[in-house]
Design a protein around this nucleic acid. Structure first.
Length: 633
DNA sequence: GCCGTTTTCGGCCCGACTGTTTTCAGTCG
């Protein structure tokens, strides 16, 4: 059992304990232990050989250590099984439905013996839920709506989960000597925020006959595989225990570029490309680009070896400029293979994130593709938490991590008091925190050596806060304190189930506040559990333009709450975007590629992004922004 | 459950918000 499996079992047990109405502190211990196990740098199954070493993990005591030892040695967890026999595994799904909590689930189970989404849905439709205490027609409707939203999300996986699985599966494939090329295609490569299944492509000259059979057998030894859907001439289809489907296809080496292009999609992009090929008398499929059957006599049917058209030769992007921001670093050879096809169609190579038939083909034909923002453009992170609220580490630890990444600045933005669960900062504690940030800034701006080596560099540490936007649009921290901060992020932390008009109104009032710099959760869309709310985004956008407020792309994989089409509208409206990781731990800075993927899908260039500015320019911009807003109000 | 300790128990996780109330339970972050 890997750490992630152990953490999952602990979390599921905690969820079931909640339904069983057990002690909340005990439940919290299970969740904390799950976090600790998941982030533990060493495999628990190794540590478990010496039980003392398990106790060294913070959050793991005698009780949890015994549970871990049981899981590692027997592959089972008796406490988990006991709760499951008492309740039902499907209740874990019910917990994912917005508005359905452990108490309600326990009540529905006690009264109706209903434990599946379908059963609860039926009860709601029959008007039977309203008969339960403290439930009414409104609550029933809300649950039905939440079930619809849940259905839309289920069966899809967060980009992060898919990328991890793809990384492991690709590593397995690359162990095979005959595999010369291997890459992930599909929506993962396009950087979509959720992924339905994985498409992996492999190619090798000797990958046929007995060698192919042996290669497939080797891949089937991949530990996560629980089911084989199909094993055919050109494709293998399996399912992992988490439910994710992986399709592996093998292609002739000369078709690898065409295959990558074809299986990366999107469907709309492929259709448009094929149309363009047809007009040029060519046929495009997953094996290559070739002259049409009906082509004029004399033309061979051999695949077109496509030279770069002269008209594009000066503008064509070098493939190495292109790879997608680090999320899935594509090999230069693979990109070059794709580029040959694009060039043969009179197009520049198009970054996978843009392939939606949303104007990218026209732009590629005329040399007007955006120069997409990339990891190297980002100079700092403007949204970070520390132990002052729910972060795990000190200001200095976060600063060191930023320094190691080569950043020029960071902003420390802990939660404000309304987020009581994490002991958010009230005015008094914010002022104390401000002193600490100023002290750290004074020290780091003199220059520090990054932990991993390298020359001494200065780092600016900005003082900020993530304030809560209350239901009436007020910010939950006094104006005189807000005025002392470099950066104020406003986020909504409660009641996303308000009517969209009410949430829009709430955001508009916050945008008008002279101290607000950045709007978090700007589209009311937290990926993990919700469908987008139908906010009046255009009105929000023009208010941001008027008041100089920047919108945030939150790179945490379960956030990404600014949709790519919103990002693109920001660009058109001249409203800046900040791409932040919302880091609660130094490691979270590595999540930047997820935010970048969203930004790139929204066609953003470096100039559209606030945190590509050099430190001094950024500070000036933030100060100016406050003055402009102040003048307005 | 874990943690810390003036060591074996007491503290840890609470405010905003809604829908159902007629004073508050349940959910969320």
């Amino acid at each position: 059992m890997e750490n992630r499996d152990l953490a999952r079992l602990l979390r599921e047990t905690a969820d079931l304990m909640e339904i069983a109405d057990e002690d909340s502190f005990r439940i919290r211990s299970y969740r904390r232990a799950a976090d600790a196990v998941e982030t533990c740098s060493q495999p628990i199954r190794i540590l478990a050989a010496e039980p003392k070493r398990l106790l060294e993990i913070p959050g793991v005591g005698k009780g949890i250590a015994a549970h871990l030892t049981e899981m590692v040695s027997t592959g089972r967890f008796s406490e988990h099984e006991k709760l499951l026999s008492q309740y039902r595994p499907t209740m874990l799904q019910l917990l994912q439905i917005q508005g359905l909590g452990p108490k309600t689930i326990a009540l529905i189970w006690a009264r109706h013996k209903a434990s599946t989404v379908e059963e609860v849905e039926a009860l709601a439709r029959e008007g039977k839920l309203r008969e339960l205490p403290r439930m009414g027609e409104k609550a029933e409707q809300k649950i039905l709506k939440a079930i619809t939203a849940w259905r839309a999300m289920s069966g899809r996986f967060l980009l992060e989960e898919a990328r991890q699985a793809a990384g492991q599966a690709l590593a397995r494939l690359r162990e095979i000597a005959e595999v010369e090329q291997a890459a992930a295609a599909g929506s993962l490569r396009r950087g979509k925020e959720t992924v339905g299944d994985l498409d992996l492509l492999v190619a090798g000259r000797r990958l046929q006959g007995a060698a192919l059979t042996a290669a497939i057998d080797h891949f089937l030894g991949f530990p996560g595989i629980v089911e084989i859907y199909g094993r055919g001439e050109s494709k293998l289809s399996v399912r992992l225990h988490a439910g994710l489907q992986i399709d592996v296809r093998w292609l002739p080496p000369e078709s690898f570029g065409a295959g990558l292009l074809y299986f990366t999609g999107s469907k709309a992009h492929n259709i448009a490309l094929r149309g363009r090929a047809l007009k040029a008398g060519l046929s495009l499929n997953e094996y290559g680009l070739s002259p049409l059957e009906t082509a004029p006599p004399g033309k061979s049917k051999a695949p077109v070896a496509a030279p770069t058209p002269r008209t594009l030769s000066t503008k064509a992007r070098r493939p190495e400029d292109a790879p997608s921001g680090g999320l899935l670093p594509a090999g230069a050879a693979e990109v070059a293979a794709e580029a040959r096809i694009y060039h043969a169609l009179g197009l520049e190579w198009i970054a996978p994130e843009l392939r939606e038939d949303a104007g990218e083909i026209e732009a590629a034909a005329t040399g007007h593709l955006p120069r997409l923002v990339s990891e190297a453009d980002i100079r700092g992170d403007l949204h970070m938490h520390t132990t002052a609220s729910d972060g795990r580490c000190s200001i200095e630890a976060m600063a060191d991590a930023a320094l190691a990444r080569g950043y020029e600045y960071i902003a420390i933005t802990d939660h404000s008091a309304s987020l009581a669960m994490v002991q958010g900062l009230d005015e008094r504690r914010m002022l104390q925190q401000l002193k600490r940030i100023h002290a750290a800034d004074a020290s780091y701006r003199q220059g520090r050596k990054p932990a991993g080596g390298g020359r001494e560099r200065p780092l600016r540490i900005l003082a900020g806060i993530e304030v809560d936007i209350l239901a009436d649009g007020r910010l939950d921290l006094a104006d005189d304190v807000l005025a002392q901060l470099d950066l104020v992020i406003g986020s909504i932390h409660s009641r996303f189930d308000q009517a969209p008009e009410a949430v829009t109104e709430r955001l508009l009032r916050a945008i008008e506040h002279p101290a607000l710099h950045l709007l978090g959760h700007p589209s009311g869309r937290i990926l993990l559990r919700r469908e987008p709310i139908a906010l009046d985004f255009e009105t929000i956008l023009s208010a941001c333009a008027q008041h100089g407020v920047t919108l945030e792309i939150n790179a945490a994989p379960d956030r990404l709450d600014l949709h790519d089409r919103h990002a693109r509208r920001c660009r058109e409206a001249g409203v800046k975007i900040a791409i932040n990781t919302d880091a609660h731990h130094p490691r979270h800075l590595e999540l930047l590629p997820y935010g970048l993927a969203m930004a790139r899908r929204g066609w953003l260039e470096a100039k559209d992004v606030l945190n590509t500015l050099p430190a001094e320019e950024l500070l000036t911009t933030l100060q100016h922004q406050r003055r402009a807003a102040g003048a307005h109000s």
